[in-house]
Computed example of a mutant assay.
Amino acid sequence: MKRQRFLVLITLLVLAFSLSFGMRSLNPLAAIAQSNTQLVVSAADSLTDALKELAPLYRQVRSNVTVRYNFASSGALQQQIENGAPADVFISAAAKQMDALQQKNLLVAGTRRNLLTNRLVLVVPRKTSGISNLKSLTDVRVKRIAIGDPRSVPAGQYAEEALTKAGLWNQLKPKYVLASNVRQVLQFVAAGNADAGLVYLTDAKTTDQVKIAQTIPSNLHSPIIYPIAVLKNSRNPTASRDFAQFLFSGTARKVFEKYGFTAT
């Protein structure tokens, strides 16, 4: 009799364990909550301030998940990912770089979404006068114009498009100072090492050392879209999806809008 009771007890314990394990398998968020996880998010430089502010807010939701950022130009990040650099989530400042990764089957299917939009602006040092629009850049007093390198920096690609449509690209070529990312463009202008520069509205808002001379008409360049996706080489795809979803939350939207982005 005692042996039968013992066997029944063992059976019940095994069943309970199996059910518990099964529930965790069915609920991926439960799995996230039960292990310490580190995510690597490769994101365009222009997202630096907003994403840094969002990290502790996400930590309040997932206390065991640590988000580590890798900020650079979207083109540089694309190359890193293609070369096998560890990353879980990619946020680009243009569709071009995300398209390239998608064509190489490096994104988790169904995770790519458009997260944000931005505007392109012409900025000048705070005390500068006489530069009010793109046409002003042809003035002989304007010697140096900072833009992101169009070969790898989306802000530079948008700048090239705008100046080309305005009929100014070739005329201004001798004046260009090419930067490796959009934040470097901003630094050149803020330090007075360039007479003007083309950056995102969100970058211009981060310093009082520059002022906006013109918001570039959106019909002069492609829409400035920030797509996001989970990467196939992610070691934590479930946590990566959860973080990506958090960036579409009301909490994240408020932070993004604070920095000048517009949620899609």
Rank of each mutant, 00 (worst) to 15 (best):
I147N: 13
G148T: 11
D149Y: 05
D149G: 11
P150D: 04
P150T: 06
P150Y: 07
R151S: 09
R151P: 01
P154I: 01
A155M: 15
Q157L: 11
Q157D: 07
Q157P: 00
Q157S: 12
Y158W: 15
A159E: 02
A159W: 03
L163Q: 05
T164Y: 11
T164C: 01
K165E: 08
K165Q: 15
A166R: 04
L168V: 10
W169L: 11
N170A: 04
Q171C: 00
Q171G: 09
K173N: 01
K175W: 11
K175D: 05
V177K: 00
L178C: 08
L178D: 12
A179H: 03
S180Y: 08
S180E: 09
N181S: 12
N181T: 14
V182F: 07
V182Q: 15
R183P: 06
R183A: 14
Q184S: 14
Q184Y: 11
Q184M: 13
V185H: 09
V185C: 13
L186Q: 15
Q187C: 10
Q187E: 13
A190G: 13
A191M: 10
G192S: 00
G192Y: 00
G192D: 00
G192L: 01
D195R: 08
A196Q: 11
L198V: 13
L198F: 14
V199T: 09
L201S: 04
L201R: 01
T202C: 03
D203M: 06
